[in-house]
Design a protein around this nucleic acid. Structure first.
Lengths: 194, 194, 194, 194
DNA sequence: GATGAATGAGATTTCATTCAT
DNA sequence: GATGAATGAAATCTCATTCAT
């Protein structure tokens, strides 16, 4: 199967993206060298510049890829109120599970977007905003205590998601479903013994 | 006020440490240049090497300073069970407040220790361990639900502390006391409306 | 005559080696700067690192080049016992002449290998060993006094070769043949008047 | 016993000279740092400059010390023709032995003067000149073959002395007397079996 | 006589990036 | 589409040497 020039180019670019993701996610931005990436891709340094204008450009492309996928997921699935569930708590748990599954799908991209990216605060702010909007709706429907500052709760929830992604989900120590269940149980019911 | 020679050296070292903390905390490790630090301190580059053996060395000195202070705080104060309170919930809130106050005292050092430091996972693990040990004790005393995995809860609590430190405490948006109150309320009582 | 890309690189590396040899041989290791070498080669500093991993690396490459050529000469020519001569004294003189001719061929390399190289003791030990082995053979054949310590004689001979190379051969004051003749006359016949 | 300031200064200078000799002789000129020397002497860097105007200055002082002692030895003892011996061969052997003894007395100074010193060629030229003058006299007295180029012989003898000093005398493998005997035997009688 | 603090000058090395083919 | 050769710009670090006391 002979590839056309165009296809070969696309394949090279894809390979560079994948391998760059792997390097960035393992070593961080500064400790990843263009020479490492192209060597892994079996290419030379000038070839890199056929596809990306700079080291920063490929990094941004990766973080934006993560960001876009996350937004798509949120818009298409998580906000899909058509998704009916027997009760609101199961509903939340399902959404959380889906989100963890998304984060587990492309670990390198996730690590880059959430941990390596120096602008990770922005992505997190996005997550916080959408989580808060969701929570506020449920709160207005009377499911949650009306005295809770949902901005605050959203920030807590997002930080938990990030932390557990780093220490449990990506290392394979806990499944998406398990984490979702644990979080929902803790946050909804609280810690106090009856 | 004339400084002795020895005092002058100590002052120079201290200035370098302070200024390095500021640079590292703002720009991160790689984007901080020795030339920036010494220029800010009114010194030349070789003077830096009178006090630190390398760029890495001063960075490590800063992260260890944070780590040591944190450990000291934990050992001297947070674990001090002599600190009697009317009830366990106030007790927890007080501890949390003290911890936030500690984090707010030296913002640069905190940012370096918690966010810039590539080994921040280790510091976090330390925090998780001590929080968990505390929680387990309270749990055994019957204050908390016995079915909770306290390792998990500790991880959640620590991630919340870190996140809120970054987004609220250090920027001055919330006080230590307010954050402590909010966290305790959320985690202990849960979100569900009665 | 257009050079291919690949040939150009090889030419650059060769130029660097030649010029480095010249600098090292004139100034010694420490007083030779990479900047001198590349300037002489019409290149910039980073180009140096395309071909050699460090300053030490190029120096070692040069000393090993000398060492290898010397070994090759010894194995291919000097030990060649097929080389028949009317008598053993002419034989020795011829070998000595060939060795001096070798040393005179690449003066810079010779100076680096014998005088600049901090490990020159090793090269000299190699020479001593092979000279001794030769002499022992002739001794066993009855040509030389049986009471001579040939290790000692070899060391003397080698030191004479080195000294005369430095003071006479390389400055062009004496020819290889003349030096060989003088040495053989002195060492074989001794100084005593009949 | 309290030392006067002057005495203390002299002692410091002497210590620096001795220790510098040791460092230079072991590591060579460039790899010896002022900081090493003063540290070994229990002093600080500025103290060094009380006694020597530069690194080069102390090195030159050491090489000149060697050179001067050598000249003194030669003038006072080796050229002392009053020193009568039963025969000229014993005479030569004795001189040689004395010279080796001189070289063995202060090994560091010897190594610096003969091997480390970049101007060692000059010292060697001095040695060659005086050896040649001696030999020419003996030659004119009829002890040596009249067809020998005594400049050449002197160069050979000096190179042998240097080599054997480095490989045998200073490492303690051969004594001054033994080396003198071996050299005289080889050079006077030659290698040819009768 | 001696010191602690500091510096001038420079060397090696690295790395993202471009040129010419 | 891809390459070998080369570079601009800079960063870390070293070391002999001096200043002020």
């Amino acid at each position: 199967m002979i590839k056309s020039s165009k296809e070969k180019g696309k394949a090279s670019k894809a390979r560079l993206l994948t391998l760059a993701a792997s390097e960035f996610s393992r070593r961080g931005y500064h400790d990843t060298k263009i020479s490492d990436i192209v060597a892994a891709a079996g290419l030379t340094q000038p070839a890199f510049y056929l596809y990306f204008s700079s080291k920063e450009a490929i990094f941004i492309e990766l973080t934006q890829a993560f960001h876009n996928r996350m937004r798509t997921l949120i818009e298409n699935s998580l906000l899909d109120s058509a998704m009916e569930q027997e009760n609101v708590f199961e509903h939340i748990k399902t959404k959380l599970k889906m989100f963890f599954e998304f984060l587990a799908m492309e670990p390198d991209l996730t690590r880059i977007g959430l941990f390596v990216n120096p602008n990770r605060a922005q992505i997190r702010a996005d997550m916080v905003r959408m989580v808060r909007d969701n929570l506020v709706k449920e709160q207005q429907s009377g499911y949650f205590r009306s005295d809770l500052d949902m901005e605050f709760v959203a920030e807590c929830l997002v930080s938990m998601i990030e932390q557990l992604t780093e220490t449990r989900l990506l290392p394979g120590l806990s499944s998406a479903g398990h984490l979702a269940t644990q979080i929902v149980d803790l946050l909804l019911n609280g810690m106090i013994a009856e």
